[in-house]
Amino acid sequence: MDDYDTIYGSDRGPQITIKEADSRHAQIVLSNCDLAFANALRRIMLAEIPTIAIDIVEIQTNTSVIPDEFLCHRLGMVPLDSTNIDDKLIYTRDCFCDQYCERCSVTLSLHARCTGEDNVTVYARDLVIAEGAQLGSPVINDPEGQGTVICKLRKGQELRLKCIAKKGIAKEHAKWAPTAAVGFEYDPWNKLRHIDYWYEEDAKEEWPKSKYADWEEPPIEGEPFNYDAVPSRFYLDIESAGSLPPDEILQQGIKYLQEKLAAVIETFSNKNETGDGFGDGVRSPGQDYSMGGMGGGGAGYETPYQGGRTPFGGGGFGGATEYGGRLMGGHKCVAAVAMG
């Protein structure tokens, strides 16, 4: 393909084989690829693919034994259907609404009360999504069709709340992660000796064989060690959390890697009026900072010490997004942001 020969010579470049796949997970083999790229793909699938998750909870009644903030956290973790999110929802920070609107959020409501003698369990299926929402319905995969447990209610206890689900990425909070895990393995026979196995008497006897071992040739006894060998086959096991199917996770991963590149290219091109890469931002080592802007819609320069805020709005300590947190003060009802 195009400019491709210059990178990979005459060979065909990376290849993909799908070993196993269903609606929740996929095992793929990325061959003729390099470690740096395979790892970039893994990292991006873990942390930078947008999904939708409950971000603000307005609680009207909570007489359950679970405190409000605990409940909010649980609600935040419920996976919501996020397929084709890029066509359906924008980030609240990019929206011109005051707080949230249907362009940048999805509203789900929950009302449950225990009236009988037996305890009632509230499940994800009890979240009622606002009419006309294109995505954001709770993911239900169990055979009973109930979804995850949110809480349990005893006689007389009641739950009445409104959830605002927003678009976000797992770099800000893990609730937005599309993957439950991404398995990443290479060199199942440890020919490259990247692993030094601990053993009692014999490592070969004591360690189980890799599940990918049958996909590669076992080492020949007495074979000399190849000092130039580098890993080139990578076994990825994409385990979906439910919000996106594994094939969409992979495709979105590549897409967002390209968006990163595009953002960097654009920023450099804007800075570089002189054509040599030394636009207005040149500085010598040791010289004081004159900060340049940053691409990709981020907030630019922030000191790392003030509140630990990331350009993505979040931050561990306050437990509030830049956009969500601001909203809370204005509400009369008890509110908390669904962040851990």
Partner: peptide, 29 residues
């Protein structure tokens, strides 16, 4: 982003990026 050292060598500082881009870019360059 800021650039140091004119000539045949330079350092670029990219804000908001991490190992995801860094290592892959380093490799390809």
């Amino acid at each position: 982003m800021t650039v140091r050292h004119p000539g045949g060598s330079a350092s670029f500082e990219i804000l908001g990026e991490d190992h995801t881009l860094g290592n892959a870019l380093r490799y390809i360059i």
